[in-house]
Deep mutational scan, measured.
Amino acid sequence: MIVFVRFNSSHGFPVEVDSDTSIFQLKEVVAKRQGVPADQLRVIFAGKELRNDWTVQNCDLDQQSIVHIVQRPWRKGQEMNATGGDDPRNAAGGCEREPQSLTRVDLSSSVLPGDSVGLAVILHTDSRKDSPPAGSPAGRSIYNSFYVYCKGPCQRVQPGKLRVQCSTCRQATLTLTQGPSCWDDVLIPNRMSGECQSPHCPGTSAEFFFKCGAHPTSDKETSVALHLIATNSRNITCITCTDVRSPVLVFQCNSRHVICLDCFHLYCVTRLNDRQFVHDPQLGYSLPCVAGCPNSLIKELHHFRILGEEQYNRYQQYGAEECVLQMGGVLCPRPGCGAGLLPEPDQRKVTCEGGNGLGCGFAFCRECKEAYHEGECSAVFEASGTTTQAYRVDERAAEQARWEAASKETIKKTTKPCPRCHVPVEKNGGCMHMKCPQPQCRLEWCWNCGCEWNRVCMGDHWFDV
């Protein structure tokens, strides 16, 4: 396979590697080409510095992935760790964990309700045991953590790749202090920090972006993250068709209702045909949960890209028209025109101005929308079919299609509260000796007794199943 190397943020060049090629071997190839010592090179990928003893497969490097290699003399205490030698983080029983690669970060837990604080980093599902597709590297999971809308060759929703760059020099040479644990960490600028490894760059702020994971991409090709779309790892039924499908869209209502993408497309087109989208002054033209839940309008309007190009163009047109109407304007009634106009409040005669090729020149009556006339309008008909009709959803289907309910059931079956801080902690095999993952707590306690870890627990039921 081919990976592209950008040395000291210059133009990239291809390097041929195998899945079992080590990072140090990659350094040696680059060092020979650039005429520099291999031990002064640092390989940066997806916000993480890659260790010498890791392989291309370990690092989730795919065909035509772009890695950054910078030349920086080692500072005291760094060289041993980078070589894969006596790194205290690798000691058996050590409590410190390697910062998780962005290629394996899962933010789907952050669609849980606000009262489930902490689960994004504490609760991990076991539903990723799908067998890898044919042709994928051994052991590589097909679980997708992110979804994007690819405006490039795909023109559809695709699995996405999370990447990070330095907000100062805009190069992907920043190593994160810690990985993101929720969508806010990724979507809110300057929320996460790190250290830029580019020479002479003092940058410390992280800037995240997404790429389409279905095809090789260049540095400049980015895609918009659709953070309401998630892999259906909890096997929730769709609120409309009641099938279990994946991926799904999880509405931001209190129940976190789930809808499959085909039904979401149908829901949007139906509402669009009836012009029953909601115009929100802050958000724009949007839709609420299909069950009509309060405070559930979709905030990231790129989710409506699921409509496809033709329907999305209609959505944008109707949204612009609705904006004009909300501002007190009118639409030209001549067939084939429909231009938005903003006449004076007491102006009865409205002319669709033909300047700049935008208007048709038609003069019409503001009251009856017919060709302009003197005197009273002959008839004014009330528009028919403008009443909002509820999208029919079966109550039982709505009850079963809740992301929140599956989460709470998982928590109930696989977790116990920490005796000190009461945060839910998952036990997935292993011994009875637990350690609270909350940095402010870190209590060592017994899963069996529910009390602080002691010699009695150690001698009596340390390794009970």
Rank of each mutant, 00 (worst) to 15 (best):
A406N: 14
V380N: 07
P14L: 02
A134S: 11
G308E: 13
N232M: 00
N448W: 04
Q158Y: 03
G430D: 12
V105E: 13
K129Q: 12
E310G: 05
A38H: 06
H265F: 14
I142K: 12
R256G: 06
P437E: 06
S136H: 12
R442A: 15
G139M: 13
E16T: 07
Q78W: 14
L443Q: 08
D60R: 14
P437T: 08
N254A: 14
A371I: 13
R275P: 02
C253D: 00
L358D: 15
I239N: 01
Q165V: 15
S167M: 08
P281T: 10
C241K: 01
F362G: 05
A371C: 08
G203M: 02
D62G: 12
L358C: 14
R89V: 13
L61T: 02
G340R: 06
S127N: 13
H461M: 01
Q25D: 10
A406E: 12
K413P: 13
C169G: 01
T242W: 11
R6E: 04
Q326F: 06
R348W: 05
C431A: 15
N454E: 02
T83F: 14
Q316G: 07
Q158S: 08
P133S: 11
A363M: 14
N52I: 00
G118T: 06
E221K: 07
N448T: 05
N235F: 06
R396E: 15
D130E: 11
L176F: 07
Y391F: 11
H303M: 06
E16K: 10
P37Y: 06
V56S: 01
S218T: 13
K408M: 11
E322S: 05
L283C: 09
A225P: 15
C166R: 00
V330K: 04
A339T: 15
G355D: 14
V465D: 15
E16M: 07
D185P: 01
L226R: 01
I229N: 00
D87Q: 12
P335Y: 11
A401V: 00
V380P: 09
N8H: 02
V15Y: 03
R245W: 03
E399N: 13
P132W: 09
A134D: 10
D53P: 04
C95P: 15
G459E: 15
D20S: 10
T125P: 14
E322A: 05
Y267N: 02
I142T: 11
E195R: 12
C150S: 01
G93C: 09
R75K: 13
Q57S: 12
